[in-house]
Write a protein that binds this DNA or RNA. Sequence first.
DNA 1: TTTGTACACTACACTGTATAGTTTACTTTG
DNA 2: CAAAGTAAACTATACAGTGTAGTGTACAAA
Lengths: 202, 202
Amino acid sequence: MSAALTRSEKKRQDILAAAKQAFQQEGYDKTSMDRIAKLASVSKRTVYNHFESKEVLIMTLMAEMWQQVMHSPAVHFKPDVPVREQLIELLLREIEAMSDEEFLALNRVAFGYFFFEPDAMKRQLERMGVQETAMMSWLKAASESGQLKPLDANQASTQLHGLIKAEAFWPQMLRIAPVLTEPERVSLAERSADLFLSHYQA
Amino acid sequence: MSAALTRSEKKRQDILAAAKQAFQQEGYDKTSMDRIAKLASVSKRTVYNHFESKEVLIMTLMAEMWQQVMHSPAVHFKPDVPVREQLIELLLREIEAMSDEEFLALNRVAFGYFFFEPDAMKRQLERMGVQETAMMSWLKAASESGQLKPLDANQASTQLHGLIKAEAFWPQMLRIAPVLTEPERVSLAERSADLFLSHYQA
DNA sequence: TTTGTACACTACACTGTATAGTTTACTTTG
DNA sequence: CAAAGTAAACTATACAGTGTAGTGTACAAA
């Protein structure tokens, strides 16, 4: 079913790809519809045949990118596996997720667009932060099982996210550092887990 | 000498204040020179008499905000004071610095302006990150004195900053959470120091 | 106290350009 | 041939920056 794109559908994809690239690199305001058309090798009219306005275009784009990105598998706490091993696994997944080019691209587009609209920004970040819930339930379970000390799951989750985002998200989203390599990710997950467990392991 | 502003100097200040507000709330692109003039209760021509272009205006603004913000006192490691106490003090200072409204405002303006120019963004962040150097030398000294385990000062500094920025910088810069109250700051400094020291204290 | 002078400020019209979105006349493709 | 695409000109608007004629203010000379 995937190669069976009609010409029209292909044009649509081209336009979305062009918009993704342009919005990511230049931002919404500085990207003209003429430029998107040119980048997509499509006439401007065709852009408007598929998307009735620039606003609709970026919204559709963000919605579709969202689809691609959202697949949180939800890791459950297993009482029989060592906490360290589990935590490293969990952190590694989060690091992989935030290192995904598509995820970064979505964030760049959304940040550029919502940066000056705190309410929309907040909603956006809350959607993104669904993972935090998964981590929080893992932390709660690990704590209740007695393998971690009693803790404020919210605080602990924020700490863990702070640790990994400082190296694996913010610099990449701002394009001031390249995406982490696999060994770097493993090292980050291990160091973060070790720091965390030194304090929280029962 | 402070109240002795000529009319011209006052107008200049009004314009900069208006620009600060507008650029912070709406962003560079969406803020017109007409709007700035109106906000400053000044004619558009006066804006151009003081600043030859919009570009010069925002650059001047950022430079002046930079002056106000940059005053890093540099904390030195004292072998005779308990590490925990010193670290909390150091973290608290960093938290205060990043909670400063002027600092946040500068960051919002600069982010909005540089977000899509990675090179300029990088330079900006490197200037901002001067504090990180101070923290790193404290960490090195503390480690060499034997009070902290041997550590990679760079990594350790990133971890500490990750911990505090997750609560005291990113949410505030994005306007999705209010600036921390004094007790919240103390709590954050203590929790971060304790987590860190559980792992790194010798 | 009045008058003269320099200069910054104001109001407003104007130029030039960029850009969202539309229209039209014609072409390509399934 | 019908649906979708193309190129290019067009409308409407916003906005950076300029030019100008006149006004307000500070300050000094008379």
